[in-house]
């Protein structure tokens, strides 16, 4: 019970609306204004999950989706609230396990996680490169595929660069945790997209659904394919962004949150 109530101290209560507003404003800009094939609508959710705990993270995600649906007209996000909840819950678990903690390492201890992270990113991107539906010239999908591959390459370079420059294995584990979160989010959101909207949600990702259907996928598999296209890379970037935010926040500030010390670990000697 104390575990639950300490996730909702005044500081967390003050953080949650800020996190929700960041989710909505960034997510709306990315999906509806820039029409990119990713979302970037869970930075606040993951931040709260890591700093405050799984239940606070899940609630931030669920409230973000519901408030987004009411605050901005013409959105399709509301029914996806459970997915956002799962993302926040997972972020809390990763934070508890210390995924976001700095991990100074050398040699094999440093490069093994990096190789695992690069492998995970490659595993997510290869099906996109190999799927003929994404190269259909009738759609603008080649542009989207190129964008997602460029993002994945940038992510890989980021993981390697941070590992090399800072001798820190944490970015690699953060990328792996983000990719796992994305796969689970894709699996959770596909049935919602298929049943509520017939797979079409009005964001930039619709073109991917169209391409997959033209390639012969049914409603559910097209929605699932779109999820696997966007979610893992999106959540990996988001987790990475949260890691950078945490690295930029003062430790004094972080330690005041219920899971702050667990999330960033002890002061380096």
């Amino acid at each position: 019970m104390e575990w639950l109530s300490q996730q909702f101290g005044t500081r967390v209560i003050a953080l949650m609306p800020v996190a929700i507003a960041v989710n909505i404003v960034l997510g709306y800009t990315v999906a509806n204004v820039l029409k990119l094939p990713i979302y970037l609508d869970s930075i606040g959710t993951i931040l709260v999950g890591v700093l405050a705990g799984p239940i606070a993270g899940a609630l931030t995600g669920i409230l973000s989706s519901l408030i987004w649906q009411v605050a901005i007209p013409g959105q399709s996000i509301g029914p996806f609230a459970p997915v956002a909840g799962v993302i926040g819950l997972l972020a809390g678990v990763w934070g508890y396990l210390g995924v976001y903690r700095r991990r100074p390492a050398e040699g094999g201890n440093l490069w093994l996680p990096v190789v695992i992270a690069l492998g995970a990113i490659a595993l997510l991107v290869l099906p996109i490169i190999n799927n003929p539906a994404y190269n259909d010239p009738a759609f603008t999908v080649p542009w989207y595929s190129a964008a997602i591959i460029a993002v994945a390459v940038a992510l890989g370079v980021g993981v390697v660069g941070m590992a090399y420059l800072r001798r820190d294995a944490a970015p690699a584990w953060v990328a792996v945790a983000g990719a796992l979160t994305g796969v689970i989010a894709a699996i959770c959101s596909a049935p919602i997209a298929a049943i509520v909207y017939g797979g079409v949600t009005g964001a930039g990702t619709d073109i991917i659904v169209a391409a997959l259907r033209q390639g012969g996928a049914d409603v559910f598999n097209a929605a699932l394919g779109q999820g696997f296209f966007s979610d893992p890379i999106d959540k990996t970037i988001t987790s990475f962004v949260v890691f950078i935010i945490l690295a930029g926040m003062s430790r004094r500030l972080i330690a005041r949150f219920p899971m702050g010390e667990r999330a960033v670990g002890p002061e380096p000697a």
Binding site: P73, G74, S76, V200, T201, G202, V209, A210, R213
Partner: peptide, 18 residues
């Protein structure tokens, strides 16, 4: 505000329904 969503739903389902 719902028009982009509605147009997307109309176009994709009408032309490409599995």
């Amino acid at each position: 505000a719902s028009l982009p969503l509605v147009i997307s739903i109309l176009l994709i389902n009408t032309f490409i329904y599995p």
